[in-house]
Design a protein around this nucleic acid. Sequence first.
DNA 1: GTCTATAGGCTGATAGAC
DNA 2: GTCTATCAGCCTATAGAC
Lengths: 232, 232
Amino acid sequence: MVTSLARPSRRKKGRERRDPDATRRALLEAGARLFPEKGFDGVSVEDLATRAGINKALISYHFGGKRGLYVAVLESAFVEMAERLRTVEDGAPDAREGLHLFLRAFEDMTRGRPDFPALFLREAVSTGIHPAVLPHLLSIMRVTRRLAERGHREGLFRRVDPVLFHFALVGALGFFFATEPARRRAAPHVPFKQPTAQAFIHHLEEMTVRGLAPEASSETKKKSKKRKGARS
Amino acid sequence: MVTSLARPSRRKKGRERRDPDATRRALLEAGARLFPEKGFDGVSVEDLATRAGINKALISYHFGGKRGLYVAVLESAFVEMAERLRTVEDGAPDAREGLHLFLRAFEDMTRGRPDFPALFLREAVSTGIHPAVLPHLLSIMRVTRRLAERGHREGLFRRVDPVLFHFALVGALGFFFATEPARRRAAPHVPFKQPTAQAFIHHLEEMTVRGLAPEASSETKKKSKKRKGARS
DNA sequence: GTCTATAGGCTGATAGAC
DNA sequence: GTCTATCAGCCTATAGAC
C-alpha cells in the first residue's frame, strides 16, 4: 500500500468493532475498480458502498464525499505508477535498456492495476489534471526526459524534444491499455485477431529504438560523445 | 453535413414555423460540443437544450432520448473522420507521402472538430465501441493497414503488424489531441512550454518513418520488390 | 414540431441513534 | 466509527396543449 501506513493502527483496548483503516482501504479499492470503468459521474455512492461492503455514509465520513474518494483513488494510483517507473532508471546500464525496462514496468503495472490507464485517460480528458496528481505526473515525465537525454549523451539516441518524446510514447501506451477492454468486447465483430500487450510493447520498443537511432548508424555504438553540455 | 441530407426538406405549404432539420442540427452541434467535454453522464438534457436554444422535450422527439442523440453525435463524428482519412490514399504518390498526408489530415480535422479525439477516447474507454461506429473505425484501420502494406511493397517500410502499427500511431495521435485542453489548463503550473500540434505531428512522422525504415538502409530506395504476395 | 408542466426515480449528503 | 432514516435537488422522459 502506498497512501496509508502499513500497520493496521493498533487498537487501544479492543473497544472498536472493526479496523477503520480496513474501511478506508475497502473504499479505495472499490473506487479503483469502479471509477475507471464508469467514470466519476457514472458511479454512485451507493455503488461504491455496496462494492466495498460498507455503508454509504462512511464515504462522507472518511473522504468528505464522493469527490474526495475519487481524488484519493486517483492520487494513490499515480503515486504507485510514478514510484514504479522511477525505479527503472536505477537498474539500467544504458538508455537503451532503460527504455526496455520502462516499457516492461508499464506492462507489469497494468497487470496489478489493469484499469489505471483508463482512470488516467479519463482524468486527462475531462476534469483536467487534478493538482494533487500533477507532481506525480511530472515525476513520470522526468523519467522519460532523462531517458531521452541519457540516450543522447551515450550516443545511442539522436536528440529529440523530451516532451514530444514523452507524449508519443506514453500516449501510445496509455491508449493501447486503456482501450484493451473495449477491444476484447469488440473482438467477435472484428476482422483481425487481438493484439497482445506483449506484442504491442515489443512493436513500440522497436519503433522507438529505430526512431531514435542517431543519423549515422554504424556498428560501433558508444563511439562519439560530441558536444556534451550543448542545449538549445 | 454528413448524416442529414443537404437540402432543408422542402416545406409543403409553409405551415411549419421552423425548419425541423435546423433543430436536429442544433442539437447535434450542442452534443458535439458538450459530450466530449463532460462525458455522457456529465451532460444533462437541460444543458443540451439550452446550448441548442430549443426545448428539451425535442431531444426525445427527434432522437428518442439523450442516448439516441449521443449515438448520433458519435456516428456523425466518426463518419466525417473516416471520410477525411480515406481521401488521403488517393492523393499520395507513395506510402511515405501517404503517411504525411494521414498525419496532416488528422491535424486538420482537430481544427474543425477539436474535441473529436476526446469523444473518441471516452467512447473507447467507457461503453466500449458502439456498434454504429464500428464500421467507420474499421474503415480508418484499413487506411493505416494499407499504408503499412503499401510501404512495404514499395520498399519504403519494413514489414510490421498493421494492427500494432495502427494502435501505436493513432493512439499517440488521439492521446495528444485529447489531452490538449488539459495541458493548456495545466500550463501555468508546469516546468515546460506547451508542445504545438505541428511539432508533435512532425516528431511522430519522423519517429514513424525512421522506425519503419527497412533493415538495409541504402540510398536507392525502390530497388528490391522481394516476394510480392507473401502473407502470413 | 414545438412548447409547458409534471411525474417518478435516483442522487449525494447528513442528522442522530448506537 | 458505523449505521439507519430522510431530505432536498436534479435527472430523464412524457402527456397534452398549441
